[in-house]
Write a protein that binds this DNA or RNA. Structure first.
Length: 121
RNA sequence: GGAGUUGGCUGGGCAGCCACCGCUGUUUUUCUCGAUAUUUCCUUAGGUGGUAUUGGGUUGACAGGGGAGGAAAGUCCGGGCUCCAUAGGGCAGAGUGCCAGGUAACUCCUGGGGGGCGCGAGCCUACGGAAAGUGCAACAGAAAGCAUACCGCCGAUGGUCAUAUUUUGACACAGGUAAGGGUGAAAGGGUGCGGUAAGAGCGCACCGCGCAGCUGGCAACAGAUUGCGGCAUGGUAAACCCCGCUCGGAGCAAGACCAAAUAGGAGUCCUUUGGCGUGGCCCGCGUUGGACUCGGGUAGGUUGCUUGAGGCGUGUGGUGACGCGCGCCCUAGAGGAAUGGCUGCUCACGACAGAACCCGGCUUAUAGGCCGACUCCAAAU
């Protein structure tokens, strides 16, 4: 069993890393409450970046909760994914769901992305 | 017991597994920088490499311990801190506005005074100036600020007429009148007596008001006190305004340090041989090149960054806000942004809501739960 940590090397840290994915998106997973963008990278592991704007989610408590749920679901599913850079973009209404529903939603989303990656590779 | 006022505390708990971010310790785990001792080589000083001991930094591993709030919020005030500006003063602008105190400071807090509300505990209060000026006031009303005559009253005085002759009466014409009625939120003090043609601070008494004194109070202010003034000076200043007091600007994306790549700048050296232009060719001139160094500086990184007007306990001064002394404690520090996820049990089934340089306030949001003090009503003793 490999590690399910979520250290610094598994996150998108710089503006360039974000721009690279925005500018050259290979895969998309869409949902009324969020959007996933993915692009293969040259590393040994997948990396995650998140955009949770105040414009879409008003209260910081809700923004924090969404980020935690997304991050934790990614952490648990990371080894099912190929080495890709993924960006999570939130859409309006995500804060209306409970933590449990958000977790279920995200686990489904990662599986979907995994499938898409496997077909193309 | 019921109704109410007010001050304070708390803001689910326990266990397991998996993660995140600081801190401390252990560990030759990686890379790296010194110090000391000794030694190799070049060798005067000195330089260079090795070995041993030791001290950091860095990167792993393991262990321990810590990790959002009472409002972290709104960003409405005040201050610290940082940079910039600044001789001094004025104007403009903004803020503020009963008095005294507290404080680093405040528009905050405490105590006191005035006014208003409540049976009361208590609550509310933007509370300087309207006899400097300007402005504003719906409707009603005759009149709303140099007051005013609609009804009413009077008509002494003057006028007209009658009577009549030391006059008397009529008219309500001039005129007088703010007592009464009516309008209004408000009609230029109130009550009584005198007075008068009728009235009127016109006069007087008491009450009220203003001014000056006296007494009490640091003061705001109060007073069953004294004198003077017949009483002027209606309201509105979160209308302009006047007066007193306060205020330089920008903010941690402040600021400090390190510093790639690329382009450009400065200097030194190299190319005595290059390329391009001028030219028929050479010299020459212009332009272009390479290496190194330097400073500015972008990305990025480090720092600022949590020990502070700090907390808790205790003693002491003060009505109190708070001050002073002593003892103990260190209690988030992230950075695309940690403080979480899943599972189980449990109860009253969990509200508002997430630190971003730091404090002191204010305001707003908030499911519940707990404690204290006081008031009114009812009953009992």
């Amino acid at each position: 069993m490999s590690e399910v940590t979520f250290g610094r090397e598994k996150r998108l840290l710089t503006t360039q890393a974000f721009q690279a994915v925005f500018g050259d998106t290979h895969h998309k997973v869409s949902h009324p409450n969020f959007l996933l963008l993915a692009r293969p990278n040259q590393l040994s592991n997948a990396r995650l970046g998140m955009v949770v704007a105040k414009k879409n989610i008003r209260f910081s408590v809700h923004r924090n909760r969404i980020k935690r749920v997304v991050r934790d679901s990614f952490r648990l599913m990371q080894h099912d994914l190929a080495p890709v850079d993924v960006i999570f973009l939130v859409r309006r209404g995500m804060d209306k769901l409970s933590s449990k529903d958000q977790t279920g939603l995200m686990l489904g989303a990662w599986k979907k992305l995994h499938k898409k990656l496997r077909i193309t590779s």
